[in-house]
Design a binder for these strands. Sequence first.
DNA 1: ACTTTTTTATTATATAACCATTTAATCTGG
DNA 2: CCAGATTAAATGGTTATATAATAAAAAAGT
Lengths: 276, 276
Amino acid sequence: MPISASDRPAAGKRPKAAELVAAELRHQIVTGRLKPGDKLHPENALQAEFAISRPTMREALRILESESLISISRGKHGGARVTAIDLSSAASQVGVYLQIEGTTLQDLWLARTIIEPPAAGLLAVQRNPAALAELEANITAAREAAQHDLIRYADLSAEFSMLITRHCGNKTIHLFASLIYDIIRRQHEDVTARTSTKASVGKLREESLRSRQMAVDLMRSGNPAAVESFWRSHLEHMRDLVLAAYDGPVTIAVLSHPAGKPRLIGNVKRRARPAA
Amino acid sequence: MPISASDRPAAGKRPKAAELVAAELRHQIVTGRLKPGDKLHPENALQAEFAISRPTMREALRILESESLISISRGKHGGARVTAIDLSSAASQVGVYLQIEGTTLQDLWLARTIIEPPAAGLLAVQRNPAALAELEANITAAREAAQHDLIRYADLSAEFSMLITRHCGNKTIHLFASLIYDIIRRQHEDVTARTSTKASVGKLREESLRSRQMAVDLMRSGNPAAVESFWRSHLEHMRDLVLAAYDGPVTIAVLSHPAGKPRLIGNVKRRARPAA
DNA sequence: ACTTTTTTATTATATAACCATTTAATCTGG
DNA sequence: CCAGATTAAATGGTTATATAATAAAAAAGT
């Protein structure tokens, strides 16, 4: 029972001023009253609006900034701006949770093989021409990139999976797939800096490209079950290849180095006061 | 392409002192150097350690608090403590993202019917006696609660699904299922305050209890495919019943009321400065 | 002896005033 | 007409000080 999510509201809880302000602004953002690109009032104006002091206001802004709902810039026309929606914050939170729980890379890949195939199946149900065209465009681009730009090839390969879940018609599934992929990607670029595992990867790329084309063909033919099971096999195959590069279970480590371990953050040189 | 998660590190970026401190402490927490229950040093000690000022230190603490990694209490032996792991923060971030994207309740339920059945299937693969016993204990408790405590019955019903994903052996899947359920629950208690939809819910409860028992029996018999498809039917049935209570698509609204809309947070009564 | 109340040290919360830094617009000189 | 210095507006950060809350310890009452 203790694992349960965000238990009851915890009833009597001292709401802190900064959190209240952050909640209010967050509400205005998520309900659309503040749209991406909008500039918030400058700090002193916000202070006045909420009748709080500057440090408190800055705590509130820092919270929203850490949620990547706003981004703050300095300078004459600086200030807090509502950022375009992105899931980096959600990915961080999920990553932290999974890391504390000791989740392994294997675990993530298994989840991926569970989630992605049904999404592929949904594409076969809809048979949205635009989506299928986009998938095929990705394949041809990847086929070309495989000849001369392997980084771009890798990016396009990742993009292919994201295209599947993005067009499957379910936002939640797409979000989850994105989260999984985001964490897997960070993990890989942390451990092996995108080094092609071995030789004979050329054959592997060809095989992978053929599988993608096959999947699109099956989608076009409108057989969800076939698409789903085919794509599951493909993912399981890829998973085994990737995981074979590691010895045993690998627990993920999303937050490897805060910033090169600078023990002291502030400059200890107290301001020298240059003595006018 | 613009949907992609947390793009490249954004290269040249001014790290703020508060964020650096928060990152450092967060790192110590997720890597286990600080365990749940541990007390952080008092504010002034932390200031000294990181060589920053009080407001900046407080900004950092506020960030970590908003991520529910620490909880701060006042009083003689108060201070910042590392909190037990919980996913409320991840749920909030995911909820905010989905709300901004205009996700509907239907979307969430569909995702649930995609994710949960494979988890049930995994239970049939493992046939872990302890897990199955826990599921049956939940059923008998729910059967009893159905007679005299409907709130407890509802909680146990929710718990049953969480037990499935918790014991399926995949932490990621369990997390996602928990997130979905957390948002669905918040949404329901926001719209209909857990009012039993109609009459004849007694029959519905019986039917639901039978389905759960049936699922456990299938798990015990060790037929993953059967469990998976049976549980999918059950969930789709439940989904249709629940969604029938709404007219059309319902976009979720996780952050309905920040705190009763108190426009001004601070007391405007500037301290009267009693004039020594 | 044990419970209840009061005190008190410790800690967080919040405000005010201040200086430093960054950035873009504007003014100036060639 | 353009390049560089100036300036204005904004955030980043510090110090100092005052207030509120709370848990533990001490004191009082039964």
